[in-house]
Every structure is written in C-alpha cells, then in structure tokens.
C-alpha cells in the first residue's frame, strides 16, 4: 500500500515546493505504514524526476500522454486519479501551491473523495487528524478526515525540504495516461513573459505604505527611499482599494507574501490579513503615529511619528552619509 506524492515541475524544472511535499510525505508514509512513491506528469517529467529517490521516493511514476505537453489542471488531475486507481494507493499528497491545491481538488472531484488543503501536521490512523491553515495561516483548524482515499496538501513552507537519511531507489516506472482530447481544453495554451527585475516577493528591502500615506502622489517619497535602498514599494489593501497603487504591490493574505531583510511599514495598522503576508520579513520597522498600532507592537523596531516627515528624513540621511 502506498502514499503518492505529486511532484510539480514546470517543463522539466522541478518545483522546490515538491521536495517539501516529498519530505513531508515520506515521514507521513512511514507513520502510516505506507510506501512513499512519487508521481511526475507530462513533458519533461523524467528530467524532473532525477533527485526524487534522494528525498525518499522508492518508485517514481512517470506519466505521459500527448495532451500532457504542458501543465493542465484537469489533465494532471485525471492522470493522478488514474495512477491512484491502478496502483491501489491509499493516499495522495501535494504541496499547497496554486497548482498542487488545484490538481488535488480535481482528483477529489473525480474520485468523489474529500480533500484537505494546506495541512501543517497530519496524524494518520483509522481516521486521520490534521491541523490545517485557514485565513492564509492566521488561523489554524484541527480537523478529521474519513475517506476511502486520503487526499491532502501540505502548506507551502510548513516543512523544509531535506534529503532522506537513507536515499531510496527512485526507480522510474512509466505510466501511459488515458486521456480524452477534451482534457486538453485546460492545458496552458500560451505564455506571456513580463520583464523581470526585483519583485515584491524577492526584494531584500520593501518600503510599505498604508492608508496613512494619504494619496497616490504621496507615495513618491516611499519610491525615493526604496530606490535609494535598491528595494521596491509595497502597500496595504486599503491603498489598492483606493486605487493609489496596483494590486501587484499589495502585501498580505490576498496579495504577495514578502520575506525581505527589512520591511519598512509606514502608515499601516497591521491588520491580521496584512501581517500574514509580512511576517516572514527578517526585520520590521514600523513608522506610525499610533504607538498602539498592531504593526508597531509586532515590529522589532518602530518610529512613532508622522511618516511624511520621517521617510524624507531617512532618505536625506542616507544621501548625506553617502556624500
């Protein structure tokens, strides 16, 4: 009996998140008395499969079909459901990425089984018990799962990817998927590549502004400071809702999760949905007129003052020191 771990890849490049899923999956499989097997789907799958044995996969099912030329949620879900049926697997797991959650939802719909998304911890048994994320991680839910086949995702970043103590064989086993042409209708048809620079998600410095900034124009001072620090500007949902900044600048549960060396959060109250996107920052400096604001009490550093005075003063001080 086995637990299958879906390993995502993008045209042959394995997603780091897949190794998290495999790390989590091999421990779960051991606790449940199941064999840990990996699944890779579509064009480029064999390339992506190379390291999976080192992370604890005894077997790697490599699925192919003409329809699987690129990612497609239905085609991937249908393929994984077929591998579950043909191997008699007891459970399937993926990482809780956009793709992982989406594919497992398809598998669940196809097999008419429950699916539990974004688990942080799972205790197997007759009935499985798990702790899963709600509100993007601001709240946790203990839940139970009764199912014929257990379908779960592990929350992204819940575990760190680590190779197994004793590598497993990672033997590649081909699987010929049986897909109707109609499954192709949700396969990626095209890609638009945008110019790449530092992004909000990867920038080492983020200068954030909230409602306290007051207008779109007044973000100019934040832009200047961010430019001086080689960083980017971020914002709260109050700002995007006012149309002051594009949604691509929004930090939080329904925006981007940031992890900079320092997040300078100015005029932001620090609502829980904003905090969940900012909390992975290594350091936080809150600039707020209200010393009781959640952002201030949770930050490592704070300046209790008007951001319109403080931000230009910081920029000026940096320029002064640089001479």
């Amino acid at each position: 009996m086995s637990l299958l771990v879906l390993c995502e890849h993008d045209r042959g490049v394995l997603a780091g998140a897949s190794l998290e899923a495999l790390t989590f999956g091999r421990d779960l499989a051991a606790a449940a008395g199941l064999a840990c097997e990996a699944v890779v789907i579509g064009e480029g799958a064999e390339t992506a499969a190379a390291d999976l044995g080192a992370y604890g996969a005894a077997t790697v099912h490599v699925a192919s079909h003409a329809v699987l030329r690129d990612f497609g949620p239905l085609a991937w879900g249908e393929t994984l459901a077929q591998i579950i049926r043909s191997t008699g697997a007891e459970a399937a797991l993926a990482c809780g990425t956009d793709r992982g959650n989406e594919v497992l939802a398809h598998v669940a719909a196809l097999l008419d089984e429950p699916f539990v998304a974004n688990c942080r911890q799972i205790t197997p048994g007759g009935t499985w018990s798990m702790t899963r994320m709600q509100w993007g991680g601001s709240l946790l839910e203990d839940a139970t799962l009764e199912a014929g086949i257990r379908l779960v995702t592990v929350a992204h970043h819940a575990v760190e990817a680590t190779p197994a103590d004793t590598p497993d064989a990672g033997t590649l086993v081909p699987f010929a998927a049986d897909l109707a042409d109609s499954a192709a209708c949700t396969v990626v048809a095209d890609r638009v590549v945008l110019t790449q620079g530092i992004t909000l998600a990867t920038s080492p410095v983020v200068v954030g502004g909230g409602r306290g900034v007051g207008s779109a124009e007044k973000f100019a001072a934040l832009e200047e400071l961010a430019a001086e620090l080689g960083g980017v500007v971020g914002c709260s949902r109050a700002v995007t809702n006012n149309g002051w900044r594009p949604h691509s600048d929004q930090v939080g549960q329904t925006g981007t999760r940031i992890a900079p060396q320092i997040y300078i959060a100015s005029g932001i109250s620090g609502a829980i949905q904003h905090w969940v996107g900012a909390m992975a920052s290594k350091n936080i400096l809150a600039i707020n007129t209200d010393s009781e604001a959640n952002m201030v009490t949770k930050a490592g550093y704070a300046v209790i003052a008007d951001l319109h005075e403080v931000i230009p003063a910081i920029t000026e001080e940096i320029r002064r020191r640089r001479g």
Partner: peptide, 17 residues
C-alpha cells in the same frame, strides 16, 4: 519593539540600523 524615535530626528538611528 525597539522605539528608534518619535520624530524625523529618528532618521539617524534608522540609517544606523
């Protein structure tokens, strides 16, 4: 929370950080 200041004069402590 380490309070670095209560006005624009905090800029110096911020840049130190």
């Amino acid at each position: 929370t380490v309070i670095l200041g209560t006005g624009p004069e905090a800029a110096s402590a911020v840049v130190d950080l």
